[in-house]
Amino acid sequence: MVAMTAGPGRETRIDILRGLAMVVIAINHITVAFQIYHLDGRGVPTPSSFGYSSSASIFVIMSGYMVGMVYQRKANPTAAVLRRAARLYVYDGLLLLAVTPVLAMMPAWEATAWSADFLHRSPTEGLLLFLALLRAPTLLDVLQLYVIFMLVTPVALWLHRRSATLLVGVSVGLWLASQFATLTGLLDPAVVEWKFNPAAWQIFFFVPMLLGTRRAHERVFAYLEAHRTMTILLAVTVGAFAAAKLLHIERHVPNSGLLTSKGNLGLLRLIHAPIIIAFYCGLLSWRRDLVASAPMRALACIGRQTLYCYMATVWITYVLAALWYRAGGGYATYLGAVMLAVLLTAAVAVVFDARARRTTAHRKLAITA
């Protein structure tokens, strides 16, 4: 989650991809939270409904890419990355503080459904587990995952400086080890409670980080602009994945849970997420004027302020879901909550993007003064 401001020479299409992922996350959060309280009716369909990767996968990939593209250029990348990790850590704590009033009014069953039972059983011990990045209530674990990745990024940069192949090898090796540990039962799920196993998910962060250091998007967009048939091929592939998901073809494969596992980043998820991103890149390359449209500009704004947008969507998800349940539910109210979450996400992006622009303008003025 790298905050950025618009500027000359900036690739807006990357911001659009991040913004789209953020909007999908906001919708998915509301749907999943309301399903905790037995939402009666189908959830609002999103790209996550038509494949084996969630918007979180796309978000992690794009965030890793941005880290490689932005921090590699810093005079002291290690110090900059660690400062960012500290900031994310503080924000995760503030987010816990913000949702604590909602958690405090929940009975035991409800807290368990939100994965916050560890805080209910023993607040002091639970807080220590949270601060140690070992446990988190639902939705707050994503920020913890980012903190862990940012803390490990200096090591990844060190490996990259010695050999890009070495970095990829270590990343792939950790992912394979995670799959092996799950397949063999080496890790007991009752003990290891990661919703996002960092050893597996790191491949979605550090391999894209490597690509970000090389600004691979420039070649990708140029290739897709010159070869439009590739976007058609990607569309067919995405459609095939969607059909397989809707028909639940994976259930006919032994140990299919290993292939589709979100927490351990199963093979189908590992394959599907990059294909989806490539498809989105193809669509944005098909017509360059599309990028200048109002909806795309709104998505780009959200994509530049993903940290604040994410925090806002988590808080409003807790508040709206708890209120919705206590008010008696209702499908129309659920749809209203989805719309409100999207509008809030956009509003937060506009506010913080304007603030970032003012800050940038003041810095330039100070330099020239």
Rank of each mutant, 00 (worst) to 15 (best):
M106C: 13
V67I: 10
L96R: 03
M106Q: 15
V102G: 01
V67W: 08
V60D: 01
L103G: 05
G93C: 05
T112D: 15
S63Y: 09
R83E: 15
V67L: 11
A79S: 09
Y65K: 04
A56N: 07
V70F: 13
K74V: 02
W109S: 14
Y65L: 04
D92F: 10
A79G: 05
V81L: 14
V67E: 06
W109G: 03
R73M: 04
G93V: 06
A113K: 08
K74I: 04
L95V: 00
F118T: 10
L96G: 04
A80S: 14
V90F: 12
R84C: 08
V90M: 11
G64Y: 09
Q72N: 13
A113L: 09
A108Y: 15
S57L: 01
S54I: 03
L88P: 15
G64K: 05
V60M: 01
E110A: 06
I58K: 02
G68C: 03
V90S: 08
M105W: 07
M69P: 10
T100C: 04
V99G: 00
F118A: 13
D117C: 04
G68R: 06
A75D: 10
A98C: 00
A104Q: 10
T100S: 13
A111W: 02
A56P: 00
V70T: 12
M106T: 13
E110P: 01
A113E: 07
R87S: 08
P107S: 07
Y89A: 13
I61C: 03
Y71R: 07
S57C: 07
F118M: 11
W114C: 05
L97C: 02
T100Q: 02
S57H: 09
A98I: 00
R73C: 04
R83Y: 12
V102Q: 10
S63L: 13
A104W: 14
A108N: 09
A104G: 09
T112E: 14
A75S: 14
Y65T: 02
L88K: 05
V102T: 09
L88C: 13
A56S: 10
D117Q: 15
A56K: 00
V90G: 12
L97V: 01
T112I: 08
T100P: 04
Q72W: 15
A104M: 11
M69F: 08
